[in-house]
Amino acid sequence: MWIAYEAFLCDSWPTYRRFAAVCTASAAIGADLARAALRDLAQTWEVVLSERSPAAVAWDFLTQRAHSSHTESVRRMRRVLELKEIDTLLRRYKLGLSAQRAAAHDGSVSSRVRRAAAPCCAQSDDDCEDIDMTLALSPRSWMVCAGARGEKDGG
């Protein structure tokens, strides 16, 4: 059981730390939040392993902590996007994770990650330098945007 936890830490720590740092605009605070979330996760690891999606449960430990410390920029996005959508955008475009890698961290399907990230991709991935541009597009544009870029489900 603890070997699985150690493997999970090796795989997840860099992304968890970077994600929390982006949410808080502080590498130190982000690392502290990620450490605290992973300590909490360790306390319930056996139960987490029995869940249908351990990655989703583990990600929730991190996001519960990170959401309370969002920067003003991220809080503005919360006016028009759901928290899971914001998380997806941050993983894809601030952390630079592929759709598959971003999905692996929260237990979702990579096609959902691409759809949620589509507003940021109206022109190209280069347009995603400023994550706040997502505010300009409505959620209805996500599927259209992903289709216009030729993205397909499943990979």
Results as ranks from 00 to 15, higher is better:
residue 4 A to T: 13
residue 4 A to Q: 13
residue 62 L to D: 07
residue 5 Y to S: 02
residue 8 F to L: 11
residue 93 Y to P: 00
residue 62 L to V: 11
residue 42 A to F: 07
residue 67 H to P: 00
residue 105 H to D: 13
residue 74 V to H: 01
residue 93 Y to K: 04
residue 15 T to K: 04
residue 89 L to Q: 02
residue 72 E to K: 10
residue 91 R to V: 02
residue 103 A to W: 00
residue 96 G to I: 08
residue 18 R to D: 15
residue 50 S to I: 02
residue 27 A to G: 05
residue 14 P to D: 12
residue 53 S to I: 01
residue 43 Q to C: 10
residue 42 A to E: 14
residue 66 A to W: 09
residue 20 A to F: 06
residue 30 G to Y: 04
residue 93 Y to E: 09
residue 98 S to E: 01
residue 4 A to I: 02
residue 57 V to I: 13
residue 30 G to H: 06
residue 47 V to Q: 12
residue 15 T to R: 07
residue 7 A to E: 14
residue 13 W to L: 10
residue 107 G to P: 00
residue 63 T to Y: 05
residue 69 S to Q: 13
residue 29 I to M: 10
residue 58 A to I: 06
residue 87 D to H: 07
residue 39 R to G: 06
residue 23 C to W: 05
residue 50 S to F: 01
residue 68 S to C: 08
residue 101 R to E: 15
residue 75 R to A: 12
residue 66 A to H: 09
residue 85 E to M: 03
residue 42 A to T: 02
residue 82 E to C: 03
residue 17 R to T: 15
residue 42 A to R: 10
residue 20 A to L: 07
residue 89 L to G: 08
residue 12 S to I: 04
residue 69 S to H: 15
residue 29 I to P: 00
residue 12 S to N: 10
residue 95 L to K: 09
residue 32 D to N: 08
residue 30 G to A: 07
residue 61 F to V: 04
residue 61 F to A: 10
residue 31 A to W: 01
residue 98 S to Q: 03
residue 56 A to K: 12
residue 25 A to D: 15
residue 91 R to G: 05
residue 23 C to R: 03
residue 72 E to G: 12
residue 40 D to F: 01
residue 101 R to K: 14
residue 90 L to G: 06
residue 39 R to I: 15
